[in-house]
Amino acid sequence: MKLIPLPDLGPHPVTEFDYGGEQSRPPLVADDATWAAHVFNRTGAPGVLREWWYHRPTGGWYLFERDTAQDRFLRSIPVQDICYELPTDTSAV
């Protein structure tokens, strides 16, 4: 059974995880076609993907770079590297 190397907890069986798919940042300002491409299109070809994995026992999300041809987990990505600012809600209380 596949093992996934958690950054702090060591290898854990893949059955403890839910796959969250490819990580991608929505284009906050985009024309309709660009937006649609973000919603539906994916990096389909084999290669290194940044993906979300949810670890059920600890209730935590992890980001990994994985080689999708070899099924090799290459490294874990700090979430800070991918986070982005929400547009400010000026009208918020």
């Binding site: 596949k2 796959y19 041809a69």
Partner: peptide
């Protein structure tokens, strides 16, 4: 459940 370009079995 996850993307993979392989015909490996589990």
């Amino acid at each position: 459940p996850s993307v993979l370009h392989s015909t490996r079995s589990s």
